[in-house]
Structures are given as C-alpha cells and as structure tokens.
Simulated assay, not measured.
Amino acid sequence: MKTFKVIGANAVSQWLNNHGEKLLDSVADCYCQFAQGQTVCPDSYFLRYPDQPQNRIIALPASIESDTAPVSGIKWIASFPGNLQKGLDRASAVVLLNDRETGYPIACLEGSQISSFRTAASAVLGAKYLHTTPGKIEHLAVVGSGLIAHTIVTLLEQTGWTIDAMTVIDLDKQRAAEFCGKFTHITTTSSDDIADIARADMILFATSAITPYVKDKALVAHKPTIIHMSLRDIAADIILEGQNFADDVDHAIKANTSLQLAEQQAGNRAFMAGNIVDLIKNQVKPDFNKARIYSPFGMGILDVMLGYQIYLDTPNEALCEMDDFFPTPYTQA
C-alpha cells in the first residue's frame, strides 16, 4: 500500500511555472492518447444549485491507460463567481489520483492551478494551430480579466509568443485595469465595451457567462482567431459561420454551450471542422477565410495527467506524507 501524499499550492505552482514547453507537449500528447483510445474520459458531472444558477461544482473523472504512466483520478472543481467580491478566486479545486493497479488513492493535489494551466495549455495549442501568424499576436483582445485569462497570457509569453498590444474587456473596468497592470511590458488598454474585440486579430474569451452576448457578426467580420475558453459567449449564428474546433466534439456539444446552441439551430454538427488532434496531426487545416473558433470543453484526462507528472516530480520535502491514512486491511487485522 502506497503512502498517501498531499501536494499543496507552492509545489504545484513551482512545477507549472517552470515547465512551459513540457506542459504544452504533455497536453498535446494526452490529446493524442485520447484519440488513440488510450484514455478513459467519461462526461463531466455537474452539481448545480437551483437558486444559484451561476454557481456549480464539476467532477471530471479520468484514467490514463498508457503503459508508461497508468493512473486514474478525478478533478473536483467549484466555480462560484461571487467569490470575487469576497477577495477569493472564482474557482477552487483538488485533484485526486488513484493507483491504477489497486485503485487506492495515492495523492491529493491543489487543483485550481493545475486546472488553469492545463486550460491555458489547451488554449495555446489552439492558438498555435489556428492563428494566421503563429507566435505573434498584433492585437489581443482578452474578454474576462480573471485567473484563467491571466494564466493563458502568461503561458503564451512563456512559450515564446509576442503580443504587440492588448485590450482587456470586463464589465468591471477596474478589474480590467488591474489586469493590464500585470502586463506593463505590453501596450494595454482596459475597456468595458465588447465592441473593442473588432480591433483584435486574436480574441480570448475567459468569462463566467452562462448565455451568449456576442451576437453582432460585424464584430468578427475581420476573421480573427477566437479562443473560446468560456464556451457560452458567442451566439449560434456566429458559430455557424466560423470554422469550429473542440478538444472533443462529443464532450463540447452539451451543457448549453454555444456549440450546443448552434447544433440545435442547425439540426446537425456539420459546422464542426474537427478536434484539436486533427490540427496537431495536420489532418485538417485552418481556413483563414473564416473566423477560426476553438471551444475546448475541458477534459479530466489533462488534470490527471498533469497531476501525476507533478506527483512524480515533487521531492518529498515539498509535500506532506501520511503513512497512516488508510486503515489496516481487513484480512490483516
């Protein structure tokens, strides 16, 4: 029986902030393993509150079945937007890992950073394969000025992207201004007007919106790269006229995402060009005559894979070990 380990925020942060390229490679490899049937990735499960529709807790179970790193686990992540008014992060999470041979839990890791960085890695991969000038953004529009957006911009820069200018758009213009203050080396502007996305060659949506509000087709008539991380910002009409990709189509077309609304309107999924693996393997090419929209729903395999990598790499002095976490097996008592 393995010792149960607890890995906190500092150790998790240190790994994530020092392995940018390894992070991207690991996420791309995990997507490819999924496409090859080497993972188990059930649907996410949502705990919702009838009187608080903006709040939710999501369970993402997964298993990596490869010979090199077999492990199972689950991410349990809460999204409570009202936390921002309390000085707390919107999202909090843990990642639990289970030994693939015995099923015993082997570790609990602080999960919000793993979640934000794996989300960022997915976003950067989408940008890499869909943007007209990979590695260079002339004008980035960031819609939503929270942790996810910050992590994505940070990882873009960590992996060699240059950003000439950035407009940060948020209903709370003060939050947008504070976000700009974290990137003083970029020419930044804060705004509360969604029309400002029309000036950007790349648009990043990272909000807590639950229904589409971007409905004017003219805002994306310049055919930008759209990294649609919050999934519910864009009206179905815009989705149907774009070239659309997801991490996995079946996972992404549900839960009232913009993609599901587009399917309901169109009556089919012909508007989907493919999954991220189709881009990674060069099986589908970006169409620069359309807005290219990447809408990854989020897959638990990424959290489990990254959590396991951090578990393997974290030295004992940086974690807490519990030798007596499990009871003595009944047959040995």
Rank of each mutant, 00 (worst) to 15 (best):
M1H: 08
K2Q: 12
F4M: 15
F4W: 11
V6G: 02
I7S: 02
A9N: 05
V12Q: 03
S13H: 03
Q14S: 13
W15Y: 15
G20F: 05
K22G: 15
D25G: 14
D25V: 15
V27W: 00
V27Q: 01
A35T: 03
G37Y: 06
Q38H: 08
C41M: 08
S44V: 06
Y45D: 05
Y49I: 05
N55G: 06
R56P: 10
I57H: 01
L60M: 10
L60E: 01
L60S: 02
L60G: 01
P61V: 10
S66K: 05
T68C: 09
P70Y: 00
S72W: 00
I74S: 05
I74W: 01
F80Q: 00
P81M: 11
N83S: 06
L88F: 07
A93W: 03
L97H: 04
L97Y: 02
N98L: 11
R100T: 09
E101Y: 00
T102C: 09
C108H: 03
L109D: 02
L109Q: 03
E110T: 05
E110Q: 10
G111D: 02
S112W: 07
S112M: 10
S115E: 04
T119D: 02
A121H: 04
Y129L: 15
T132D: 13
T133R: 12
G135V: 14
H139V: 11
L140F: 14
L140T: 06
V143Q: 01
V143T: 06
G146P: 00
L147K: 04
T151P: 00
T154M: 10
T154C: 04
L155E: 02
Q158L: 15
G160T: 11
T162V: 12
T162I: 09
I163K: 02
D164N: 14
D164E: 15
A165F: 08
V168C: 08
V168R: 01
A177R: 06
G181R: 07
K182V: 09
K182W: 02
I186L: 07
T188K: 01
T189C: 12
S190L: 09
D192L: 07
D192P: 02
D192H: 06
R199W: 10
I203C: 06
L204N: 00
F205D: 00
T207M: 05
T207N: 02
S208C: 04
P212S: 11
Y213L: 00
V214P: 03
A218K: 14
H222E: 13
P224G: 04
P224C: 08
T225S: 13
I227R: 01
M229A: 11
L231P: 01
R232L: 09
A236D: 13
D237I: 11
A246V: 12
A246F: 08
D248C: 12
D248W: 09
V249Y: 13
A252Y: 02
I253W: 01
N256C: 11
E263L: 08
A270Y: 10
I276A: 08
I276S: 03
L279E: 08
Q283L: 12
Q283W: 12
I293V: 14
M299S: 05
D303W: 03
M305A: 14
Y308P: 08
Y308S: 12
Y311A: 07
D313S: 15
P315Y: 14
P315F: 15
E317R: 10
E317F: 13
L319C: 12
E321N: 11
M322E: 07
F326A: 12
